[in-house]
Design a protein around this nucleic acid. Sequence first.
DNA 1: CTGTTGACTGTCG
DNA 2: GCGACAGCCAACA
Length: 106
Amino acid sequence: MEDNFFNKVYEVVRIIPIGRVTSYGAIGKYLGSAKSARMVGWALNKCPNDVPAHRVINRNGLLTGKAHFNGINLMQQLLENEGIVVEENKVIHLENNFWDPSKELL
DNA sequence: CTGTTGACTGTCG
DNA sequence: GCGACAGCCAACA
């Protein structure tokens, strides 16, 4: 596996537990720089089927990437399907469902 | 090869 | 508390 920042994003996102969500910055920070959150978004832009990009949201718990999915409510539906409460395109109880690779994965 | 854009976040004013 | 700027790296025109 190539240790590129890009590739790391795929691996981290793939290991996100069910019923948990994380943020672009959390992944970017785990990889080295929180400022690399943009790269996380760009990486997810490739959005391989193996990567549950719907579990990756912004720091505010807002489903910023919902527009990039096949539909608009698809991302929300997937999150709710995993038991995550989503309302107005944002995750409720975010801190309760938040999964930080720097802490959980460690 | 150079410039712009992009699913973000943190800091400064 | 809100607005604007900077930083990170890769892909596309």
